[in-house]
């Protein structure tokens, strides 16, 4: 871990200014991913701005009947919130499917969106990785890719976004609220927040230097029945091979997003429209452009079968 100076920001404005004023500074919230990566010298900030005192730890009702979730709300607190459990259970389910109790106590809403890939080649600094070291190549493409992306990837990178929470948020049409280094704010639909790798896999998302996630907005509750089905080899504390987040209405319509398959929570709105026709039709649309490796081709069939299970459960409700 590279030596760094440490600062606690007392406000969001102070934090974004502190990070935005130099090119080697990073925000620190829970730290459950950042410190892991710093220990391996995958992240090498020279200055750390700890934002825990910025007051972003509240969940508030919004005027249009939704929720504004502060970026520092912990995964545990968000999943346990009565309003979330009642009105957005897909989010509670998604969060509780991820990581461990200890990590969820520390991990934050904003930090979780910024969780980096768990690709083994990204993690091993002896290996070529365009995400870690732009231009070095991608050792994963022809390598051990069972866990990696089947869609949305490029010939520069096949990393997956590993999280669960964001997959749940994706079917809820969540919006990310940020503050830039100059103090201005903006709202970014979660759909547009994570980038596909293309030629620049080093950029996971659209945030600018010094831009801080301040909150996530959920629109008013979507109703329907909520599901989060995560498929993994071991029963807990493992990243998804495939996960399915779905909100299914009584008439069979709904929304569906997939985790563990792409560099971002994977939702194709046109595929939602096929929900009434069953899992096969949804997958045909959602994974039309899939480019799996031999090792991870199974994920497409697995996604279809996992969705079929969700739809069967929805029908039997």
């Amino acid at each position: 871990m590279r030596p760094f100076t440490y600062q606690r920001a007392g406000s969001v404005a102070e934090a974004v200014k502190a990070v935005g004023s130099r090119d080697d500074a990073m925000f620190l919230a829970g730290g459950t991913n950042l410190l892991d990566l710093m220990k391996l010298q995958i992240e090498t900030p020279a200055h750390i701005v700890d934002i825990q005192d910025t007051g972003l730890d509240k969940i508030e009702k919004t005027k249009d009947g939704g929720l504004r979730i502060g970026a520092l709300v912990s995964n545990t607190a968000l999943s346990a919130d009565e309003r979330v459990r009642k009105d957005y259970p897909v989010l509670t389910r998604a969060i509780q499917a991820g990581a461990s109790g200890q990590l969820r106590n520390k991990a934050t809403t904003g930090g979780n969106l910024l969780q980096r890939t768990r690709c083994s080649y990204f993690y091993d600094t002896n290996m070529a990785c365009n995400k870690r070291d732009p231009g070095s190549g991608c050792a994963a493409l022809q390598g051990y890719s069972r866990q990696l992306a089947v869609i949305g990837s490029s010939d520069k990178c096949i990393a997956t976004y590993p999280g669960d929470m964001a997959v749940g948020m994706r079917v809820l049409d969540a919006v990310v609220e940020t503050m830039k280094a100059d103090g201005s704010t903006r709202s970014i639909a979660l759909a547009d927040f994570h980038r596909l790798p293309g030629d620049h896999p080093e950029q996971d998302n659209v945030l600018e230097t010094g831009e801080l996630i301040t909150a996530v907005w959920l629109p008013k509750p979507p109703g329907g029945r909520h599901f989060y089905h995560k498929v993994r080899d071991r029963a807990s504390y493992a990243f998804a091979l495939v996960s399915v987040a779905a909100v299914i209405q009584d008439d069979g319509s709904g929304r569906v997003a997939f985790g563990g398959v792409a560099p971002k929570p994977w939702r194709v709105e046109a595929a939602d429209a096929a929900l009434g026709q069953g899992a096969k039709a949804v997958i045909a649309r959602a994974f039309a452009d899939a480019r799996p490796t031999e090792e991870n081709r199974f994920k497409i069939a697995l996604a279809e079968r996992a969705l079929a299970g969700v739809l069967a459960e929805a029908r039997n409700a």
Partner: peptide, 14 residues
């Protein structure tokens, strides 16, 4: 609350 103390800087615990 329980946490993993390996993924937390001492500085975060003032």
């Amino acid at each position: 609350e329980r946490i993993n103390s390996c993924l937390s800087l001492a500085m975060q615990h003032q």
